[in-house]
């Protein structure tokens, strides 16, 4: 490559808006980790391993989408893991009580959204920090699980079992589950809402500068409450997918899942101070986490706790990367 080419490449890199850089970095990290896996392990670079990343992390993708909305406004939602667990519990309990599957699913989605809405209202109207309110939400949701049942409740409903085990063939023996389709649909809807509706634009505006957004006459209060409702809905839906994945409801499902979700969103390039980030980045963040997990299981000798350490290190690297980006504004 001669000097001119280098310069041309540099020009092109310079022309990429800075707000895309973190997302691009995430995709690079994903390609790198996946590439490392492919080189090191036989059978890693197969289409089925790739699709399994989605199959095993469908619920995480949905949760990360909801979290992205919240973090984009500069907030945080610690309750997502607990609300997901509560959703598995409500689903299992209502199905056990003989509810039709659709009604059970609707009950789950309605209760998750209501919980999110409630937290948003408290945050907005009482001006309490999101951290504390969603921490209370987390306690509440986990506690409610155990009020329903202390034991794990298995799901025997035929429709749920069919949805859970049913696969869609992509040819050549590669299969997907319905959960993946739902997760991808959620991602598409989220992209639409964030980028093609006024609600989405206001989400970004609130995260960029809430006082400016208010002076511009945007409905900031509605958006601040709304994102927690969105996150509650996504947590409930993610919980439903998780109940398909586990085929049980249990109060200890998804302990610490909120950390994975926050990590995925941050690794996906969303700034925790709000205003910058993309749903696609969060999906990439989930895939990075999934790849790390897959590599560790392929390695065999490495134990599962390495996942947490690697996630922590990735989180740190991305936070410092973001910090450096913020220090030299254009």
């Amino acid at each position: 490559m001669n000097v001119l080419d280098v310069r041309r490449v540099k020009d092109r890199v310079d022309r990429i808006p800075r707000r895309f850089l973190p997302v691009i970095a995430t995709f690079l990290v994903f390609v790198l980790t996946f590439g490392t896996g492919s080189v090191r392990y036989e059978g890693f670079a197969s289409p089925q391993v790739m699709t399994n990343l989605f199959v095993d992390n469908a619920f995480l993708i949905v949760l990360a989408v909801g979290m992205t909305f919240v973090i984009l406004t500069g907030g945080i939602d610690l309750s997502v893991g607990a609300v997901a667990a509560l959703s598995t519990m409500i689903a299992a309990a209502t199905l056990e009580a003989g509810w039709p599957p659709l009604a059970a699913a609707l009950a789950v989605l309605a209760s998750g959204t209501a919980l999110g809405l409630l937290m948003g209202l408290v945050i907005h109207f009482f001006d309490v920090q999101p951290f504390i309110v969603t921490l209370a939400g987390m306690f509440l949701a986990r506690g409610l699980c155990f009020l329903i049942s202390v034991e794990s409740v298995s799901i025997t409903d035929p429709v749920f079992r069919e949805l859970a085990t049913g696969t869609i063939s992509l040819g050549e023996g590669v299969t997907l589950t319905y959960s993946v389709l739902i997760a991808l649909a959620v991602v598409l809807v989220a992209v639409y809402v964030l980028h093609l509706t006024r609600f989405g634009r206001t989400v970004y505006a609130v995260g960029g500068s809430e006082s400016s957004a208010r002076l511009m006459g945007l409905p900031t209060g509605r958006v601040r409450v709304g994102v927690y409702a969105v996150s509650g809905f996504c947590s409930a839906l993610g919980g439903l997918l998780f109940s398909l994945y586990m085929l049980s409801g249990y109060g200890l499902h998804g302990v610490g899942m909120e950390l994975d979700v926050i990590a995925a969103v941050v690794i996906g390039g969303t700034l925790l101070s709000g205003g910058v980030g993309y749903v696609a980045g969060s999906v990439a963040g989930v895939l990075v986490l999934g790849t790390v997990q897959t590599i560790i299981s392929f390695e065999g000798t490495l134990s599962s706790w390495w996942t947490k350490i690697v996630i922590g290190v990735l989180l740190l690297v991305f936070i410092i990367f973001q910090r450096m980006m913020m220090r030299r504004p254009g």
Binding site: R201, Y204, A205, G207, G208, L215, M216, G275
Partner: peptide, 8 residues
């Protein structure tokens, strides 16, 4: 103080 959103 420019009352716009720098991130957009």
């Amino acid at each position: 103080e420019v009352n716009l959103c720098p991130n957009l």
